[in-house]
């Protein structure tokens, strides 16, 4: 379980965000939405324990499975070795990973469907592949909480799809509370149970994804007209999606 309780982060006199409260149980996914500069990354980092809270309280296990927004292409290790680093805290100051840790790392890679990456150098993977490997590292920490900062922002559509599928798979195991931030409401609609809309520094809307992502709040959130539509697909249940009306929508 992971959550915040009346939490806020201040930089100088300015509050990046304040009075955020939520709790996320294992087996559930929460999506954080907000425009650029609204403090999504700060919120994620505060949750991961990387930014101290100026107010309120953080509810979190001792180590968080955290995936940062972009990890450079300059990590000169095998993907497997990057994943096994997730075990660092448990190994103690002078420890080095042993067979158990490598088994856990392999299992994590297996879980995210990246078994084939194990022996490949991390800096030779594509951006999407790196995100998947880092997700595996987050899983390898053994933490019941996964926190991902815009994991899909640099990915093409196919890789976005792949990542979301992996998140769904992990959720289905029921052992993790998963929180991720995204720019695309569609991501939230497709995988998350709950959504947190950062409307302003002090105003937040949180609730089940389908109700939280209403046209009014989304329009307010992004500052442009947004429509919710339902697509009927042959042979399966209709799916909800969101359409932003870019440039006034009509050419």
């Amino acid at each position: 379980m992971i959550g915040l309780d009346k939490a806020g982060v201040r930089r100088g006199p300015r509050w990046i965000f304040s009075d955020v409260s939520f709790r996320l149980e294992t087996g559930r996914i929460l999506a954080v939405l907000g425009p650029n500069g609204r403090g999504k990354t700060t919120l994620i980092k505060a949750l991961a324990g990387l930014v101290p809270l100026s107010a309120g309280r953080r509810i979190a296990p001792p180590v968080i499975g955290y995936v940062s927004q972009s990890i450079g292409a300059d990590i000169p290790y095998r993907a497997l070795d990057v994943v096994v680093m997730g075990r660092a805290l448990g190994l103690g100051l002078f420890g080095a990973p042993g067979a158990t840790d490598y088994r856990a790392a392999h299992a994590a890679l297996e879980l995210v469907g990246a078994r084939d990456f194990a022996e490949r150098p991390f800096d030779r993977l594509s951006g999407g592949e790196r995100q998947i490997v880092l997700l595996a590292r987050a899983l390898a920490t053994g933490s019941p909480a996964l926190v991902l900062d815009e994991p899909a922002s640099a990915l093409d559509l196919a890789n976005q799809d792949r990542l979301l599928r992996v998140l769904k798979d992990v959720k289905r195991q029921g052992r993790h509370a998963i929180l991720f931030s995204t720019h695309l409401p569609q991501h939230a609609l497709s995988v998350s149970d709950e959504a947190l809309l950062m409307l302003s520094a002090s105003e937040h809307a949180i609730g089940p994804t389908t109700t939280a992502l209403n046209e009014g709040d989304l329009t307010r959130l992004y500052g442009l007209a947004v429509r919710r539509v339902t697509l009927d697909l042959d042979g399966s249940a209709p799916i909800d999606t969101v359409v932003p009306l870019f440039a006034g929508a009509a050419p």
């Binding site: 001792p62 955290y66 997730g86 660092a88």
Partner: peptide, 29 residues
């Protein structure tokens, strides 16, 4: 003895801290 810690530290300060390491202390060691 610190070999694995150094590997983790080489990911960068934030990554190492996110993995739960006391980066400042380890570095000074």
């Amino acid at each position: 003895l610190l070999r694995f810690r150094i590997d983790v530290l080489s990911l960068g300060e934030e990554e190492a801290r996110a993995l739960g390491l006391p980066v400042e202390r380890d570095r000074w060691l």
